[in-house]
């Protein structure tokens, strides 16, 4: 799957008689608009990416008392600040200003929405328990994605957790030397290695996770709990 393929698909469909140029409508998006956005994105590789500055972080922290985190799409060097907008039991949902969200549990990403190729849900309780306890071991882990055909694809993994030393997590109001754990997972999907940095209480302050073939590696770092 590549940008070219996407552009080509758009061009193929665009060649068919469907373009709506203008009109009144309700809720339905104007295909011409969607098409031009898609083509622009395909040609330019997406909007210009600027790393988040400390000034932006300070402004964000000052504007709310809710938890805030920094999300990085590591394979695309793309960053955004996310704000906690909701919680449901142990799950917390953080969102960008443009309606993209990540759901975390204890700091571990368990789902995403609006990023494309989203992680729809996961079964991470045993893994989370090991990490929060700072212990090594082997546990099952399950991730679910939608396929191009809107079917749910389930990947079942066996993950081994091991100690990986320490790492400093500094950003926002947080600056601590945390314990780092590395997790190697193999199973029915592509193998990967995730890392988690926890504080003394076992809370994950920074998680670096593989979120499927489309999204690649994503990290979420807490700026304020």
């Amino acid at each position: 799957m590549s940008l070219r393929k996407r552009a080509m698909a758009a061009a193929l469909v665009g060649a068919l008689p469907l373009l709506a140029a203008c009109g009144s409508n309700t809720g339905e998006r104007n295909p011409t608009e969607i098409l031009s956005q898609t083509l622009q994105a395909a040609i330019s590789g997406g909007p210009e990416v600027q790393p988040i500055t400390t000034q932006q972080i300070a402004t964000a922290l000052g504007s709310t008392t809710e938890p805030i985190a920094l999300v990085s799409l590591l394979d695309r060097t793309n960053q955004a600040l996310v704000l906690r907008i909701e919680s449901n039991g142990p799950y917390e949902t953080f969102a960008t200003s443009s309606r993209q969200s990540l759901t975390v549990r204890g700091g571990m990403i368990t789902a995403t929405r609006g990023l494309g190729g989203d992680l729809m849900s996961s079964e991470a309780e045993p893994l989370l328990a090991l990490i929060q306890a700072g212990r090594g071991g082997t546990v099952p882990y399950v991730t679910r994605y939608l396929t191009g055909d809107d079917q749910t694809e389930v990947f079942r993994y066996t993950c081994s957790v091991r100690d990986a030393g320490t790492e400093r997590v500094a950003g926002g109001v947080i600056d601590i030397q945390g314990r780092k754990l590395a997790v190697v997972c193999t199973g029915t999907g592509p193998s990967f290695e995730n890392t988690f940095v926890i504080d003394r209480s076992g809370q994950i302050l920074k998680a670096t996770q593989y979120l499927g073939d489309f999204l690649g590696r994503v990290s979420i770092q807490m700026l304020r709990r």
Binding site: M1, V49, E86, Q100, G117, D213, G216
Partner: peptide
């Protein structure tokens, strides 16, 4: 919350497929 979200004018995460399947 919607108002709060509006303050976060820090852009969107742009995810494009990065890997040749």
């Amino acid at each position: 919350r919607a108002c709060l979200l509006g303050l976060f004018a820090t852009g969107a995460l742009v995810a494009m497929p990065h890997r040749a399947e």
